[in-house]
Amino acid sequence: MSELLNVSHISAAYGGIRALRDVSLTIGEGEIVSVLGANGAGKSTLLKCLSREMRITEGEIRFAGRPLAAKPYAVVESGMVIVPEGRQIFTKLTVRENLMIGCCQRRDKEGIAKDEERVYTLFPRLLERRDQYGGLLSGGEQQMLAIARGLMARPKLMMLDEPSLGLAPIIVSQILDILKDINSGGTTILLVEQNARKALSISDRVYLMNVGSIIREGPAEAFRNDDSLVNAYLGG
């Protein structure tokens, strides 16, 4: 398995407050990797650094064997897309227009049409609601739309920031199942979650964060069987 993302010793800060300290992680091609941790552990900050929304003060990020591009749009161009926290769909654009924004950098019309079809197969609800405004969708549907929009960029690596936020457990399970499908289609996934048990159930490997640092890493089974760990750090 070749290495897709390599984060080595990065730090980041909000003003004077250090939010990430010396964080290193790697993601292999085709994996599902979860970053778990309680509120304020630095998970979202990590994703912001990876999508270049936030500057890192130290360290290096390499993606697909090269240093990661410096601007958010260039990161997307290089094949790394983020599905942001809280969905962030375009409420006054239709579902289809939302999807088209997702592939705004692509020029291959046939490929786009194919991916649109694929997205509708994964999320049939979006096909039903194709011409409705994004703001009219339910929370779960909005999350599906956010994921679908990310897929339209045809990313090598998709990063999701708390896709379970504010959703009913049954919808969360549905969405995680679909993430597995997406993964088996060849997209590597980095999942950031507070909902530890659900995330563990689909992950290959896990990093555990606490106050800005990675405190443990390992295969997901090790975490699944270690209740004391889950209870201590994740409360899930």
Binding site: V76, F90, R149
Partner: peptide
């Protein structure tokens, strides 16, 4: 055009526009 759609996306949600690869 594609550019116009990008503009609407920025109007609606700048963060999401940037996350989806628009050079804001």
């Amino acid at each position: 055009s594609k550019y116009g759609q990008s503009l609407s996306a920025i109007r609606e949600n700048e963060v999401a526009a940037a996350a989806n690869g628009i050079d804001v």
